[in-house]
């Protein structure tokens, strides 16, 4: 138990301090050594997955916003003519949801 606690003496930053506090609290309220150890292991695992996630996010390739925006603008201009809600229908007859003429379908 002591060796584990000693390892945490080196903790820096508010988050680590808080965790240390929680562990101390757990000891004080009389949780068994194994329970406290489980807590510490799971905290470590949790932090590991957070850090691993950030490593993955940091490792991705990025492109300048100007290039990304130019590609979006190009896609839109290439597809604008197919966009009925934007350019309308060549004739209302082509609109499947046009209002029916006065005679109704039986």
């Amino acid at each position: 138990m002591n060796t584990l606690l000693e390892r945490h003496q080196g903790c820096s930053g508010g988050y680590a301090l808080l965790l240390e506090y929680v562990v101390c609290l757990a000891i004080n309220i009389g949780l068994s050594d194994t329970a406290v150890m489980d807590m510490m292991v799971s905290t470590l695992q949790q932090q590991r997955s957070v850090t691993e996630q950030l490593r993955r996010e940091a490792a991705i390739k990025r492109i300048p916003v100007s290039v990304a925006v130019a590609d979006i603008v190009r896609f839109i201009s290439e597809h604008e003519q197919e966009d009925c809600l934007l350019v309308g229908f060549t004739s209302q007859k082509v609109n499947p949801f046009r209002e029916k003429s006065s005679c109704t379908v039986l």
Binding site: C11, S12, L44, L54, R55, E57
Partner: peptide
């Protein structure tokens, strides 16, 4: 060698 402290520190640097 990964300790809670090193992981927290690395996470902050990565952010």
């Amino acid at each position: 060698e990964e300790t809670l402290a090193s992981l927290v520190k690395e996470a902050e640097a990565l952010k």
